[in-house]
Design a protein around this nucleic acid. Structure first.
Lengths: 173, 173
DNA sequence: CTGAGTGCAAACGCTTTGCAAGTCA
DNA sequence: TGACTTGCAAAGCGTTTGCACTCAG
C-alpha cells in the first residue's frame, strides 16, 4: 500500500499509525488525546465521572471506528457495570462538543471516532466491514464549488466508498 | 439557479423537469417509467397486484425522494387499505431488481427514487429537508482513482452534501 | 386451483428517555 | 448538600417478519 502517489491523491491513511511511545513532555499521544477530550467535557460544564473518564480513554485509544456496544465492552474493563444508555448519552454529548464524530455507514450501527485535526472520508470494505480513511483536497474543493454554484453553503458532507478488495469473487454489484 | 456553468460542474439538476405531455407514441413519460418498472417486476416472476401497480405508478410519478410512509399515502389513492409492510416489501424487491434506489440520509427514514439513467449525488438542505441532485464526472473519476490506488474496486458510493441556503441564520455549524 | 402476496400484529435492532437511586463537586 | 449522572426498564422509531387469509394467474 503506497502512501504517496503522483496524481490527485494528496493524502491517504490505512490504519491509523499511532505512536504511543513516551514523548518529550512525558505524555503518550493517547494521554494527550484523552486530556483534550476531558477538557472539552469539563469546559462544557460536564462532570467527569468514572464512566465518562473510561469512555474518554477508550475513545482516545481507539484506532478503529467502534460502535456503541463495542465502546461499552472496552469501557467495562475500567468500569464493570457501565450501561449502554450512559455510553450513548456520553457519545451524544461528545458529538455535540465536536470532539468525536458519529458515522452512520450503511446497514450497521453508528460508529464513532475522535475528531482528527485533518478531515477525511471513508472507504468501507463491504466484505469485512473494515474502514479505511482517505482525504483528497481536490474533491473537497469541487464539492464547495458545486454547493456554491447552487447558492448553498456546506454544513458538512459525507463521502463513503463501499468497496471490495480487487480480485475478490463476485466482482459485480 | 443557473443550469449551465463554466467550471468543473458538468451537470446539475434542481427539481427534475418532467415532461408529462403526450409524446409521439402516445405515452407520457410516466407511462414509460411505469412500464419499465412493471416489466422489471414481471421479469423477476413477480405478480402484479393492485398494490404493486399503485406503487409503481406512484414511484414513476415521484419527482422528489419520498419515504415509505409517503409512498403509502400516495398509493392509498388507488388502493385505500395498502399496508406499510406491503410498501416495504415491494420497495425491497424493486431495490433488488435495481430499478429504484434507497437513500439513507442522516436522521431521516430511508427515501426512494426510481433509478435514473444518469448517476447523481445529493445535496440535502438541513433546514428544509429538500433534496437537490447533482453530478460531477471529475469527482467520480477521483473516487475511482483513490479506490484503485488502495487496491479496491468501488461497489457503490455515496456523496451527500448537507447544506444551508446562503445567507440563512446561524451560518456556522 | 394454488402458491405468491396481503394485512395485521408482533418482533426487531438501534437508540433515546423517564425515573428513582447514586454520586461528584 | 444538591444538582447532575447513572442504571434500569420501558418506550421510540423505522423496518422486518410470522401467520392466516386473499387473490392473481
Amino acid at each position: 500500500m503506497q502512501l504517496s502517489m503522483k496524481m490527485q491523491i494528496n493524502c491517504i491513511w490505512g490504519l491509523r499509525v499511532s505512536s504511543n511511545l513516551r514523548e518529550k513532555d512525558g505524555m503518550t499521544e493517547i494521554d494527550r488525546k484523552t486530556k483534550k477530550l476531558t477538557e472539552a467535557l469539563r469546559h462544557a460544564g460536564v462532570r467527569i465521572t468514572r464512566q465518562r473518564a473510561a469512555l474518554l480513554t477508550v475513545l482516545a485509544e481507539a484506532e478503529d471506528h467502534p460502535e456503541a456496544v463495542e465502546l461499552q465492552r472496552r469501557a467495562e474493563e475500567a468500569v464493570p457495570g457501565i450501561s449502554l444508555s450512559t455510553v450513548y448519552r456520553t457519545l451524544t454529548e461528545l458529538e455535540a462538543q465536536g470532539v468525536i464524530l458519529r458515522h452512520q455507514f450503511e446497514g450497521t450501527p453508528a460508529r464513532f471516532e475522535h475528531t482528527e485535526t485533518q478531515h477525511h472520508d471513508h472507504m468501507i470494505d463491504v466484505e469485512t466491514g473494515e474502514v479505511v480513511e482517505f482525504a483528497n483536497d481536490r474533491i473537497e474543493q469541487l464539492q464547495a464549488e458545486i454547493a456554491d454554484a447552487m447558492g448553498y453553503d456546506i454544513v458538512h458532507h459525507r463521502l463513503e466508498l463501499y468497496v471490495r478488495k480487487k480480485g475478490s469473487e463476485t466482482p459485480r454489484d
